[in-house]
Each structure stands twice: as C-alpha cells, then as structure tokens.
Computed example of a mutant assay.
Amino acid sequence: MTGSDEARRFYAKLMAAHARSADPRIEEVFASVPREAFLGPGPWTVFAGDGRVETPSADPSYIYQNVLVVLDADKGINNGEPLLHAIWIARVEPKPGEAVTHIGAGTGYYTALLARLVVPGGRVIAFELEAGLAARARQSLAAYANVEVIHGDAVATPLPPSDIVYVNAGVAAPPAAWLKALKPGGRMIFPWRPSERVGLAMLVTRMEAGFACRALMGSWFIPCVGASVAGPQARIPTRERAARTRSIWLMQDKAPDRTATAVFGDVWFSSRDIQAKSKR
C-alpha cells in the first residue's frame, strides 16, 4: 500500500465518521475512488483561511483532507469540501438500483461516489454547464458504465424521473420541474441561496401529501445559472424564517397561505409540517 492509498483510507474513515451514517458503503466509496483522478495534474491549489495554498508536490496524500481544490480560479469553481458531501450523501441515502440526477457535476468526483452507491442497477445523469468541466468529467468517468455526463443547462432541460436530485449550485428556489422529477419517496438536496444573508443546505423528500423540506446546515455554492436570481415579486426570507421551513409547495397545487416563509415564482416554502408517510 502506498502512502497516498493509506492517506485515502484514513480520509475515508474520517468522512464516514463525520457523516454519521449506518451505511458502511460511505466509507468504502470514499476509500475506493481516487480524488486526484478528477482534479487534473498536481500540484494542486487548495483554499486555506482567506487565501490559497499550493500543495508542495503532486503527492495525492495532500488532497486527502477536508479541503476545497481549485478547478477554475477565474470562475470560482472548486472541487468542494469532502466533509460536506459526505454528510449530504449520507442524508440522501443512495441505494442500489436508484436513479440519480447530479446538477453541477464539475469534473465528476462526487458523481463517481454517487455512481458507486447505486450499483447494481442504478444510474447517474450528471449535468455540467461549463464545457471544459463537462469534457473533463466525461473523460474521468469513462470507466463508470452507469454514468452519463450531459453538457447542458439543467434548468432549461427536462430532468429524468429521479430517486435523488443532487444539486451543487446555489438557487434562489428549486425550479418546479426539479420537484416534479422526484419519484414518490425521492430526495433532493440543494443549496438554498435566496439572498446574500441566507445560505442553507435543504433536504426535500417527496411524500404522498407533498414535499417535506428541512434545513441541514449552512452551505454556499456558486450560483446556478437560470435559477439563482429572485424575481421582483419574490418574498425573500430572513435566515430565521428560512430555517423554519418544513415543506415546499407548487403554486399549481396550493396558493401561499399564512405559513409561507418564502415565495418564488411557481414554488413557495412553508413552515407547515407534512405528516403523511413517504412512499419509499
């Protein structure tokens, strides 16, 4: 075993421990997927404090830590924090045979983890808007037979029916089409960024009675083109109101009422709990 292999195994153990998941496969996939294969040749630039630091060499051991690695400095695009993704992946609970849509796949590292977790029988459709990143993702994911990378706009393109929609770009609100793409019992996790003062990771579950929604943690991602700007009629929440959100509703199904915590176009957020059991 090389030093980088040992570093990756220890990193995987830490990620799984922080994720607090009962699924041993979380550690297995972090241990088996080489992060460096999705970052380009080293040395790499990572974020530290308010600045950036270059790794001393191209030894992969340096990127088996909870660090953001720069992919495109000019556009602010990074390979995100592994700890955040470990928590997110644990909460959406990918299972063998499930269909995943990954929005904002970058170069495909977290796509690869999701792909490993849905075999056998599962599939991942990965959207990436940046042409260069999409090309790199296709190359890096060529060995993953259950992954399709689409260079395209996930806001303008209909999503396939999905058990999981995994969003890695900040939205003022998830488009109604994303919610509709969820199968019964389907889960979506997305970075909610309705204003500069609000940045929350939100977990949505499609229940029989509607879309249950919970804030998980603070979160910041680069904006999602086409879904990151609130319209003039939007009702933008404070962070406190956003954190009280317990469900999301489609305007076509129900008009906003006194429980509304935020309103954006054809979707609105509510403090009302959804009690009905999921069809998972």
Rank of each mutant, 00 (worst) to 15 (best):
T2E: 07
S4V: 02
D5F: 06
D5Q: 14
R8F: 13
A12S: 09
M15E: 12
M15P: 07
H18E: 11
A22R: 15
R25G: 10
E27Y: 02
E28M: 09
S32N: 10
S32V: 01
V33P: 00
V33G: 05
G40I: 05
G40S: 01
P41L: 07
P41F: 01
P41I: 05
W44S: 13
T45R: 12
F47D: 10
G51D: 08
R52D: 12
V53N: 03
P56L: 08
A58R: 09
D59G: 10
N66R: 08
D72G: 00
D72E: 13
K75C: 10
N78A: 12
N78V: 09
N79E: 15
G80N: 05
L84A: 13
H85S: 09
H85F: 04
H85N: 15
H85M: 01
R91D: 02
V92L: 04
K95Q: 10
P96S: 10
G97T: 02
E98W: 15
E98V: 14
V100P: 13
T101V: 15
T101C: 12
H102G: 06
G104I: 06
G104F: 12
A105V: 06
Y109V: 04
Y110M: 08
Y110G: 08
A115Y: 09
R116Q: 14
R116M: 09
G122I: 02
I125L: 11
A126G: 00
E128Y: 14
A131E: 14
A134D: 06
A135L: 12
A135Q: 07
Q139N: 10
S140M: 06
Y144M: 11
A145T: 14
N146R: 11
E148K: 03
D153K: 03
A154R: 05
V155N: 01
T157Q: 14
P158W: 05
Y166M: 02
V167N: 10
V167P: 09
A169M: 09
A169R: 12
A169Y: 00
A172R: 01
A173E: 01
P174W: 01
W178C: 03
A181G: 09
P184Y: 01
M188L: 15
M188I: 09
P191Q: 05
R193K: 15
S195K: 01
L203R: 08
L203G: 05
V204N: 02
T205E: 15
E208Q: 13
A209L: 06
G210D: 03
C213F: 08
R214Y: 02
P223W: 04
C224Q: 15
G226A: 03
S228N: 15
V229C: 05
A230N: 00
P232H: 12
I236Q: 02
T238R: 00
R244W: 09
S247I: 06
M251E: 12
D257A: 03
T259F: 00
T261E: 03
T261M: 04
A262R: 01
A262I: 02
V263C: 07
F264H: 13
D266H: 01
V267P: 08
V267N: 08
S270F: 07
S271F: 00
D273R: 12
I274L: 15
I274V: 06
Q275P: 05
A276S: 14
